[in-house]
């Protein structure tokens, strides 16, 4: 049980590195799919089986297909490397690493030694009950949001702006 988390965590990190470093958008998209699937496995290990499947169906199966479709449609090939300023390279990267290293250090220290509660039901049933009892209003609001998004996407794709 335990090593699986570290194996898939490592896969997620390597694939995320590949998302960031690949020059070709299709390779980035494929790496992102790998990240999403390994995170789904991590969710499964954490007992969130419903979310794990939703992650694969919605994120990897629908959203990323849209990305791949758009990349294919626009025929996005290798991007030309940017002529970044020298300051960004020699100052920006160390600062970025220092910043996130600090956050990493702080979370690591602050939450160390805490273990998860032994068992928790997170199947579709308990999620559904919570969703429609306590979070019914936000749920309805998201349906309005999706309607707006559909209209927006149709109009943007249709009109010659």
């Amino acid at each position: 049980m335990l090593p699986l988390f570290y194996i898939f965590g490592a896969v997620a990190i390597l694939a995320a590195l590949s998302v960031v470093l690949q020059q070709t958008p299709v390779y980035s998209a494929l790496s992102l799919i790998v990240v999403l699937c390994s995170l789904a496995v991590v969710y499964l290990l954490l007992g969130a089986e419903f979310l794990a499947v939703i992650q694969v169906i919605v994120y990897a199966g629908a959203i990323m297909v849209l990305f791949v479709l758009v990349i294919m449609l626009l025929n996005a090939r290798r991007e030309t490397p940017a002529d970044r300023s020298r300051m960004a390279r020699w100052l920006g990267f160390p600062l970025l690493i220092a910043f996130f290293g600090q956050i990493l250090f702080a979370t690591w220290r602050h939450f160390s030694g805490l273990h998860a509660t032994p068992q928790m039901a997170a199947g579709p049933k308990s999620i559904g009950e919570l969703l429609f009892r306590n979070y019914a209003l936000p749920f309805e609001l998201t349906s309005v949001l999706i309607l707006v998004a559909i209209l927006g996407a149709v109009i943007l794709a249709k009109k010659q702006v």
Partner: peptide, 11 residues
């Protein structure tokens, strides 16, 4: 969630 698993794999 067997049914959802099949749908996920097909997608």
């Amino acid at each position: 969630v067997g049914l959802l698993f099949i749908l996920a794999v097909t997608s």
